[in-house]
Computed example of a mutant assay.
Amino acid sequence: MRKYAICNETFEGWEHARICARIAELGYTGLEVAPFTLAPRITEVTAVQRAELRRQAQAAGVQILGLHWLLARTEGFHLTSPDPAVRQRTGEYLAELAHAAADLGGNILVLGSPAQRTYPAEWSRQKAEDFALDTLSYCLKALEQRQVYLCLEPLSPTETNFLNTATEAVALAQRLNHPYVRLHLDVKAMSSEALPIPEIIRTHAAWLTHFHANDPNKRGPGFGSTDFCPILQALWDIHYTGWISVEVFDYSPDPETIARESIRYLKECAEKVTPFSKR
């Protein structure tokens, strides 16, 4: 069964309960949350507030699946900082995000945040990776305790110089060697890679835990030239059972249209997917 979700920052200015009710009406069963839509820092969202957000989602038949844009609009955090204190502070904040995701009812953290991971051009990638691994070491206990997956998100070279391909993200996860550090894939980001998107999905099937549906034009699926039929076919072929979450960066024409047309197009493509048993 396919699980469709959408990111809450799409609905800027909407109350949380209204977002949940409307996306449920449109056929979504999951909501992905950007922490900055709740508070400047996730630690400012109290246990009572977290419980209420979760209750409102559940009342609408929606699950808050987790958090993304983890470090966006924050200061003092950086994944590849040369400063040990910054690395520790960043890793400990990721641990707080894991606790928050679980409190909200989710088990996913998407580690994108390009500005907070870019490293100086004169560094080697090995040096940046070593710093990143040290940063992440501070959140592993919380990930395991709360059973939350930290999903590394490859991003294009126009956004950052750290983890630009799925292969690089998997290599970092392999070095860390922790069961709750996994891979996230995003259609817009994958479009910058040399390999076709379906091939990237199949190649890294064993690591894939979360998926963002969007178009390289920064809009939703179906709002650009990307054909999602072979993409969904690849997800079906690898027996992917996670969320397909709509994430846009261009919020035109409006949240309602984005949400309605994105899921309509995804479901239309899904109807064309052929199970192995019927080939």
Score class of each variant (00 low, 15 high):
residue 2 R to H: 14
residue 7 C to P: 05
residue 8 N to E: 13
residue 8 N to D: 15
residue 8 N to Q: 14
residue 11 F to H: 07
residue 14 W to M: 02
residue 14 W to R: 01
residue 23 I to L: 10
residue 24 A to F: 07
residue 26 L to W: 02
residue 29 T to S: 15
residue 36 F to S: 15
residue 39 A to E: 13
residue 41 R to N: 13
residue 42 I to C: 12
residue 42 I to R: 11
residue 45 V to W: 14
residue 46 T to C: 14
residue 49 Q to M: 11
residue 50 R to L: 07
residue 52 E to L: 12
residue 63 Q to V: 12
residue 68 H to A: 10
residue 79 L to K: 08
residue 84 P to A: 05
residue 88 Q to L: 08
residue 89 R to C: 08
residue 93 Y to V: 07
residue 96 E to I: 04
residue 97 L to F: 14
residue 100 A to G: 11
residue 112 G to K: 13
residue 115 A to K: 04
residue 132 A to S: 07
residue 133 L to T: 15
residue 134 D to H: 04
residue 136 L to E: 03
residue 142 A to K: 03
residue 151 C to E: 05
residue 159 E to Q: 12
residue 163 L to C: 15
residue 164 N to E: 01
residue 164 N to K: 02
residue 164 N to S: 02
residue 168 E to H: 10
residue 174 Q to V: 06
residue 177 N to A: 10
residue 182 R to K: 14
residue 184 H to Y: 09
residue 185 L to I: 06
residue 186 D to R: 04
residue 187 V to T: 06
residue 188 K to P: 04
residue 189 A to D: 01
residue 195 L to D: 01
residue 196 P to Y: 07
residue 202 R to A: 12
residue 203 T to K: 04
residue 211 F to D: 07
residue 213 A to T: 01
residue 219 R to L: 00
residue 221 P to A: 04
residue 229 C to Y: 13
residue 232 L to P: 11
residue 234 A to R: 13
residue 241 T to R: 10
residue 242 G to I: 10
residue 242 G to P: 12
residue 244 I to G: 06
residue 245 S to I: 09
residue 246 V to R: 05
residue 250 D to C: 06
residue 253 P to D: 05
residue 255 P to A: 10
residue 255 P to W: 09
residue 260 R to T: 01
residue 263 I to T: 00
residue 269 C to K: 11
residue 270 A to N: 15
residue 276 F to T: 02
residue 277 S to H: 09
residue 278 K to G: 01
